[in-house]
Amino acid sequence: MSLVNAPLARLVEQGEVLLSETSDSAKLDAQVLLCHVLGKELSYLHTWPEKTIADGVFGQYARLLARRQNGEPVAYITGIREFWSLPFRVSPATLIPRPDTEVLVELVLAEHTQEQLSCLDLGTGTGAIALALASEQPGWQMDALDFNPEAVALARENARQLKLERVNIYQSDWFCQVPEGKKFEVIVSNPPYIDGEDKHLNEGDVRFEPETALVAAENGLADIIAIADRARDYLAAGGSLYFEHGFEQGAQVRQILTGLGYSNAATMKDYAGNDRITRANWII
């Protein structure tokens, strides 16, 4: 049966059927893709379920469904992912911001309530962490860096779109381009932390994400070790270091930090109850 003149509700139903074997959120994916081609919010589908769409728009929707059927993440198809209730542009040059990373933002904001503070975001990608923090704390001096020039350009574009251009975003391989002697009260990072042999690299959205932003040597811990080591030269006295990491890495990350002389290492859980964020203080 042709769906060209079918109502929106029927188009969503058919999209859900097509995506049911690809996605755990097939209905939502179909709704998001349909709204994307319509240029409408999700509420439009609930308000006008009986509306129909033009042939050309239907063709666009069908092509987007085919891409999702092939496993391509919805965020890469639409070019947008919401994080911290802010719309972030995304591209295959960066990781897709995930809800669990909001736990890191929440923790930093809860533990640092002062109006003036210096913060560095290492491996910023889309700029999600740095820009979310800046949106809540306009008085903070935020630096954000990434080794990938495409990611830097994208993060700067997000800063412009969100009117958060005071965030200093630049290219650097971890601390290489951070001025010597510069000190930060907070350093945050969501670095690569997946082991190269992890079977999950062949599943779901991560198949389409840049491997350099996902995979690290030494069972996924190499970048965490390198950052924790160098961060000691850039943290102010009593400064705090925060990592997002794998759900089985909490104890290892705490051990790494304690072994490097950090104090008060502690791990917090994500929304699913898994170890996700570890923080510690650098007390000289």
Rank of each mutant, 00 (worst) to 15 (best):
R10V: 05
Q255W: 00
V74Q: 07
T101H: 03
A272V: 06
T212C: 05
G259V: 08
A30T: 09
S189Q: 12
T94E: 13
N70K: 13
T94H: 10
P73N: 11
D275P: 10
V103K: 11
G246D: 11
G15P: 10
N219A: 15
F184T: 04
D270P: 05
L221I: 06
A93M: 13
L221Y: 00
R230F: 02
A226Q: 08
A6K: 01
R160H: 15
L18E: 14
I96M: 10
H36R: 07
A159E: 14
A62T: 04
M142A: 00
V215G: 03
E248K: 13
R232Y: 12
A280N: 06
F58Y: 13
A130P: 03
N190C: 07
R254Y: 00
Q60S: 12
A30Y: 04
D198W: 01
F83Y: 14
Q69T: 06
G220L: 11
A93G: 12
G59P: 00
L3V: 09
L201V: 00
I80D: 08
P179F: 09
C35I: 12
K183M: 13
G273Q: 12
P138T: 03
A155Q: 10
A159D: 08
L214A: 04
I96A: 06
E102S: 11
L38G: 12
I53T: 08
Y193W: 07
G56K: 13
D223I: 06
R207Q: 15
E209C: 02
S25V: 15
Q114C: 04
A75W: 13
Y234W: 15
M1P: 03
I284K: 06
F243T: 09
K163S: 12
H46Q: 06
L86A: 15
R207Y: 04
I96R: 01
R68M: 04
I256P: 03
A66P: 03
L109I: 05
T78E: 07
H46W: 11
D223T: 11
F208W: 13
E180H: 08
L257F: 10
Y61W: 14
I284S: 09
E203S: 09
L133P: 05
H200G: 03
D173C: 06
Y271D: 00
A222I: 03
L65M: 08
L133H: 02
K51N: 15
T258L: 11
D143A: 05
L3S: 02
L241M: 03
I283T: 13
